[in-house]
Simulated assay, not measured.
Amino acid sequence: MKTYAVERVGQQIVEWYSCIMTKDIKQAKLLKPEVDIMVANMEPDDKMLAYYQLVSLQYDLLVLREAPDEKTEALNETILENIAVQTNDYLNFMYYYVWGQTEFYKQRYKSAIRTYKIAERLIEKVKDPLEKAEFYQKLGISYYRIDQYTFAFSYLEQALEIFEKDSSYIMNVISCKQILAGIHSELKEYEKAEAIYTELLVLSKPYPYYQAITTYNMGLSRIFVGNLDEAIQHFNKAIRIEEFRNSAIYLKAKYHVLNLQMRLGNYAEGLEQLEEEVHNKDVKEIEGKLLICRGLYLNEGYWLIEKGLNLLQTHEYYSECRNLCEEISKHYKKADDYKKALYFLEYANEMGNKTILGVDQS
């Protein structure tokens, strides 16, 4: 039997609950068996299971009110209504929280933030502080993804303040600190970033995957300060950790190694193999970046640079586009091609504006 990801199940429950709220009993009845099967075969997640149970309660109440002859078991409407009233605010919070989570995993970060902000209005109805912390963490990460570092920092610090009081949430502590270190690097506060990474190496030592993530992020930090050789060493160290190989950023680490070798002029091999891996896994972000590498560093044609940037834009990787345009601009400036250097610098600014202002994600 297929196992369903929590985010996919959440998306289906949100759709089901939307039908219940609009009293579309016909569609709600059609969706119920689908939701039941997905929940029964969902990855373990107590929060999503609780949300499903609350929505199921609302469904039972809808059937009692709108189609009393179709109820399949003895249900007391008064009891159901009393429970529904008591849980209504929390259910509304969960509705927007799960909806926002669905948008987040689709990488529609601005849409996720809009939805999370509605949920935030109901946050006081959430009694469990750790549940609040998980919400703040999600919201902080969403802001980080669109380069809104002040908001991201604020929400992540709120989350950390709660997580650090419970040792069973060490993974959440590590994840929050990874992003805070990344923000410091982006803001050129390298000493602060390095201090957090040093702490993370200790915290993540019992967890090879998180140790690899820390090492990978330290590689990114080395790129920011221009230590490209050290960056390659960190990426290769992360790649050698077995638990990292199924990570979503494993291929990114391999890309960074090749990209940096090309920038340093000591690339030898590996591009074709990585292109095949990227093609098999349909990773458009890295596919676009590798096209740019071919055009820029292997001199296989300016059109490949344009094709790579267009691919990234099509899939709304605006932040990556901005970073790559800055890299391309520096390359052409070094080659004394100031016209192209200026063009790609302006291109980078345009992508930066799209990252901040966004596009319609409704």
Rank of each mutant, 00 (worst) to 15 (best):
174 I>F: 02
312 L>F: 05
1 M>S: 15
36 D>T: 13
135 F>W: 04
93 F>T: 06
210 Y>T: 08
346 E>N: 14
111 S>V: 04
165 K>W: 04
103 E>C: 11
171 M>A: 09
51 Y>Q: 04
232 I>R: 01
215 T>R: 04
82 N>M: 11
264 L>E: 03
325 C>W: 02
289 K>G: 02
75 L>A: 11
162 I>G: 07
319 S>M: 09
238 A>Y: 06
43 E>M: 11
74 A>W: 09
110 K>N: 09
350 E>N: 11
160 L>I: 08
192 K>Q: 15
89 D>I: 09
8 R>Y: 11
227 N>D: 15
353 N>F: 03
148 Q>V: 01
78 T>F: 12
338 Y>S: 01
37 I>P: 00
320 E>W: 02
64 L>E: 10
246 N>W: 10
159 A>W: 04
166 D>A: 10
242 E>C: 03
227 N>T: 03
74 A>K: 15
146 I>A: 08
24 D>H: 07
299 N>P: 00
98 V>N: 12
256 H>M: 14
330 K>H: 08
174 I>S: 04
192 K>A: 12
271 L>M: 14
261 Q>G: 00
266 N>R: 03
81 E>Y: 12
286 I>E: 01
126 V>Q: 04
16 W>R: 08
312 L>Y: 09
124 E>F: 11
172 N>D: 13
177 K>A: 06
48 M>K: 10
280 N>V: 08
219 G>R: 02
190 Y>R: 05
25 I>F: 08
276 E>H: 10
265 G>L: 02
114 R>Q: 13
54 L>P: 00
282 D>K: 14
135 F>Q: 05
45 D>K: 04
120 E>C: 04
31 L>N: 09
117 K>F: 07
7 E>C: 05
290 L>K: 02
341 A>D: 08
113 I>T: 07
128 D>I: 07
269 E>A: 13
269 E>Y: 10
325 C>K: 05
12 Q>C: 07
129 P>Q: 03
